[in-house]
Design a protein around this nucleic acid. Structure first.
Length: 436
RNA sequence: GUGGAUAUAGCGUAGCUGGUUAACGCGUCAGUUUGUGGCACUGAAGACCAUGGGUUCGAAUCCCAUUAUCCACCCCA
């Protein structure tokens, strides 16, 4: 087939047959967030470019080479959001939300945009479920946020994951640590890869994350951030680990995880799936105690995480997790003849007004074909309407699963009689679980 | 951005040592007598064999380029 336009590189279409999968993730994620006291926030898909530069960080890959930046007619430069935290913080500040009772807890389901080379689990337009919490500096907040992420994954049925945590300290301890790293790595200047060499000055911590064999070999014996934490950061991390253990949340301390966004402080963590290949990070997050102040607010500790919805779906499919059953038709009205047509529309309207999922033939098909279609769409009941029935003022109501047919009187009180019959059938145990 | 692989009807595949109307399964549609689905049988529609060039008497089959997808690097959700 020759199309005049193709889907842009790195984007996906969500087709109706798969809608229930997205609904499963979105519903479970938002319901779980609500359980933990989070409320939904929505904010623009694009922001002033400077917002991302200042929050995500000028030196990060995301800002340097992955942003979709557009200039409108005026002078302002706007950027399609590459992540959700910056926009959330901006919206929180602009609406003065931190003046209300703290902690402030918000969640979102959004699309994000990054100009990367597409591959499995890495898209140019992707979707995130994320949460942010403002106001608490306690390790309890960290633990609660991690527990929320864990609960969402559990409720989705995802099993094959590992939780990695680390602390990258506050700006003070990080400064000391980075100096130590530079000193250590400078001894290997001639062996490190080019990217790592350029990382030396700007962000030596990223060298720890390098996948090249040589670099990671050298990094094995590099100083560890945890040895450089100040008293406060160390205590925070110790308390967090203890609390997670008390909650029964299994984790691995991985001194090498360094989130690639500049705003993180102290706790960072990620859930990695072993089921979907190289792009296995299905949830990443941490604390960003300095960001609110950096964007012009009062100093306010904060933290959050984001999950990649496409990656969650990949994982669920790989692990054969259960999705919500797709909604199916409650009753299909199969009609024959012009006279029945009017009555059919009347009945369908009645049924739909009552909230039933009711359908009828708009294809001009014969009775047999209509029945076939009714079966195809999984209709629980069919109503057959023809001249015979119209004369008598009745219709045939057929339970598709059982194949049984009964007569139902049309006219006043039809809906009540119809509902009664459904309930009767439900007690017979013949109906599925998503009747209403 | 860098490597490697792949690209045939809506989907999944066969055909690929070049040669008549490109095959199969699923799906779609229609029939298998009177007004009733699931099973079975029969038939039909649907592909300029990713796109653009080239080699050749002749290419889905060989060559080149482009694009997309997949895998890895990188990065991250």
């Amino acid at each position: 087939m020759e199309l005049i336009a193709k889907r842009p590189n790195g984007t996906k279409d969500m087709i109706p047959a798969e809608a229930h999968k997205w609904h499963t993730v979105e519903h479970i994620a938002s319901e779980t967030a609500e359980c933990f006291g989070f409320k939904e926030i929505r904010f623009p898909m694009f922001e002033e470019t400077g917002l991302f530069k200042r929050s995500v960080g000028d030196t990060t890959d995301v800002v340097q080479k992955e942003m979709y930046t557009v200039t409108a007619k005026g002078d302002d430069s706007f950027t399609l959001r590459p992540e959700g935290t910056a926009g959330t913080v901006r919206a929180v500040l602009q609406n003065g939300l931190l003046n209300d009772a703290l902690p402030l807890k918000a969640y979102y389901i959004i699309s994000c945009f990054r100009h990367e080379k597409a591959q499995k689990g890495r898209l140019r337009e992707f979707h995130q479920f994320g949460i942010e919490m403002f106001g608490s500096k306690s390790y309890l907040a960290d633990a609660d946020v991690i527990a929320l992420a864990q609960t969402v994954l559990e409720r989705l049925g995802i099993k094959n994951t590992e939780l990695n945590i680390n602390s990258i300290g506050c700006p003070q301890c990080r400064q000391k640590y980075q100096d130590a790293l530079r000193e250590y790595f400078s001894a290997y200047k001639d062996k490190l890869c080019d990217t790592c060499l350029s990382r030396m000055e700007k962000n030596p911590m990223r060298i720890l994350d390098c996948k090249s064999e040589i670099c990671s070999d050298i990094a094995k014996d590099a100083p560890i951030i945890l040895d450089y934490l100040c008293e406060e950061c160390n205590e925070h991390f110790e308390n967090l680990k203890e609390n997670l253990t008390e909650r029964g949340i299994k984790f691995t301390v991985n001194p090498k995880i360094v989130r690639g966004l500049d705003y993180y402080t102290k706790t960072v963590f990620e859930f990695v799936s072993n089921s979907i290949g190289a792009q296995g990070t299905i949830c990443g997050g941490g604390r960003y105690d300095g960001l609110v102040e950096q964007l012009g607010g009062q100093p306010t500790p904060a933290l959050g995480f984001a999950m990649g919805i496409e990656r969650l779906l990949l994982t669920m499919e790989a692990e054969n997790c259960e999705f919500f059953a797709p909604k199916t038709c409650d009753v299909y009205i199969a009609a024959m003849g012009k006279a029945a047509e009017k009555k059919t529309v009347q009945l369908v309207n009645l049924l739909r007004d009552e909230g039933y999922h009711a359908e009828y033939d708009v294809m001009g098909r014969g009775l047999k074909a209509q029945m076939k279609y009714a079966d195809k769409i999984g209709s629980k009941f069919t109503i057959v309407l023809g001249d015979n029935e119209l004369e008598k003022g009745t219709a045939k109501l057929k339970n598709m699963a059982k194949g049984e047919e009964t007569e139902i009187t049309l006219g006043d009180g039809f809906i009540d009689r119809f509902s009664d019959m459904l309930i009767g059938d439900m007690f017979d145990g013949s109906l599925g679980d998503n009747l209403f």
